[in-house]
Amino acid sequence: MATTKWAIDPTHSEIGFKVKHMMFTNVSGKFENYDATITTDGDNFENASISFSADVNSVDTRNADRDNHLKSADFFDAENHPKLTFKASSFTKVDDDNYELSGDLSLRGVTKFVKLPVEFSGLMKDPWGNTKAGLNISGKISRKDWGLNWNSALEAGGVLVSDDVRLNIELQLVKQ
Rank of each mutant, 00 (worst) to 15 (best):
H21S: 04
V94Q: 05
G157E: 00
D43F: 00
E32A: 07
N98P: 04
A54P: 04
I50K: 00
L148I: 08
T3C: 01
N168C: 09
S58C: 08
T39S: 13
S53A: 14
S51V: 00
A2Y: 14
N98Q: 07
A48F: 12
S121M: 06
L171I: 06
A36W: 09
D96S: 15
D41T: 15
E100S: 13
H69W: 09
D60W: 11
A133C: 10
G158W: 06
S162N: 07
E79P: 05
N44M: 01
D60Q: 11
K71V: 01
N136Y: 09
T40D: 00
A153R: 08
I137E: 11
S58F: 13
H21C: 03
H12T: 14
F52T: 04
P127I: 14
T3G: 02
L84A: 09
A156R: 01
S138H: 04
G139C: 02
E170D: 15
T4K: 02
R66V: 06
F52W: 09
S142D: 15
F120V: 11
F17Y: 02
F17I: 02
L70S: 02
S102V: 13
N68F: 07
T40S: 13
S58H: 09
V165R: 03
D43T: 01
T111R: 04
L160R: 05
I169P: 06
E79S: 15
V165K: 00
R66S: 05
E14V: 15
D60P: 04
T92D: 05
A78T: 08
E79N: 13
F31S: 01
A48S: 15
K87D: 14
G134D: 10
K71A: 04
D96W: 08
H69N: 09
E170C: 09
A64H: 03
M124Y: 12
D35S: 15
E119D: 01
L105C: 03
N136K: 11
W128G: 02
Q176M: 03
S49P: 00
G122I: 07
W6H: 09
E119W: 00
D65M: 12
D97L: 05
P82I: 14
L173I: 07
I137K: 10
T11G: 02
L167N: 03
V114A: 02
S49F: 04
E46D: 12
N80Q: 12
K115V: 15
F52L: 05
D145Y: 08
A2D: 15
T92C: 00
T37E: 13
N80Y: 08
D164H: 05
L171E: 02
S51W: 04
I50M: 00
T111L: 03
T85P: 06
K5Y: 08
R143V: 01
S102L: 04
G29C: 14
F17V: 00
G16A: 13
V118I: 14
L105Y: 07
V56R: 03
G29M: 14
S142G: 11
D55I: 15
D96H: 06
H21L: 03
D77Y: 13
L116C: 05
G157L: 04
L105W: 07
K20H: 14
K144W: 03
L101G: 04
W150D: 12
V161I: 11
L105S: 00
L101C: 06
F17G: 01
E14K: 10
T37W: 05
F91Q: 06
F24C: 07
R62V: 10
G134K: 06
